[in-house]
Amino acid sequence: MTRKYWLSIIILISVIYACNKDAITERFAGFQTPANFPEPAYHFSTNEITQNKFELGRKLFYDPLLSRNSTISCGSCHIQTSAFSHHGHNVSHGIDDKLGTRNAPAIMNLAWYNSFMWDGGVFDLDLQPVAPLTNHVEMDETMENVLKKLKASADYPSLFNKAFGEQEITTAAVLKALSQFMLMCVSSNAKYDSVKRGEGKAFTEEEQNGYKIFQQKCNSCHTEPLFTDNSFRNNGLTPTALDDKGRQLVTLNDQDAYTFKVPSLRNLGYTAPYMHDGRFYTLDAALEHYNSKVQQSATLDPLLKKETIPGIRLTDEEKKYLLVFLKTLDDPSFLKDKKLSEQ
């Protein structure tokens, strides 16, 4: 009698436990490639997405403990409501309000990137957080101190143990957890995506006009569906007093002077200002740059040299339609995704 009683309790507990587990798996879908996206570039084989690791990465992303004086987190300059960019700031504002030299890029669809930062200086997403964490005008901390602070905290040791199954918090675990959060920042539910995936939505006539112009004049660099071809190009911006030579700083190759990563055009509506130094506050200004302000130089991209006057001629009407189309790349659901928010 007693044995039967215990047996049923054990069975009951197991059933409840199993149900619970199922429910969790259902809620956390892991990483999914949108139907209209290519295969991701990230090496998931060495960092398989799990709920514990992702949630740990999210906690780290929003934790100011990672900065030298515990004042700013990754999320301070990569704000979800601005598609994880630093809306309104031409260049990033780091620790003690120090200014960087470049615009904080949006964190989205990084799983499809094979290089990071405006100059591509980082070639593995797992190594990327080291740059802002240790930069003196960003978070100004050492990796050594980051580990020390995490090990001394009340909650991190058990969270790392739960996620990675290791007693000791390691550099690799911190970086891989942060990668998990960034990888999960997938923006793929703009109107453009719904149209492309045939989910019942269609472009308006104006959007369709803009799409045609886009395909003729923009798509060779801002290639669909990620709206970047991941290349580095000089788009003819006049160098400022800072004379930022972009990718040349990383390769030391003169042919790379003034080239920068082609940024994605997704979520443009939320990520102003534009360009690597945030010099354009509006999309009109950005389009006008291509129309009339492209600066001739030795490394200017060949695609901008096709006409006698460098650049891409755009009539006012074409610009109007392009702006209408570009709005279809805004993904409001990405900005509101609770899974990606500070908890």
Partner: peptide, 12 residues
């Protein structure tokens, strides 16, 4: 891979 940067190679 970052997991193979231990010991003398650990940036932390």
């Amino acid at each position: 891979d970052v997991s193979e940067r231990t010991g003398a190679l650990d940036p932390a």
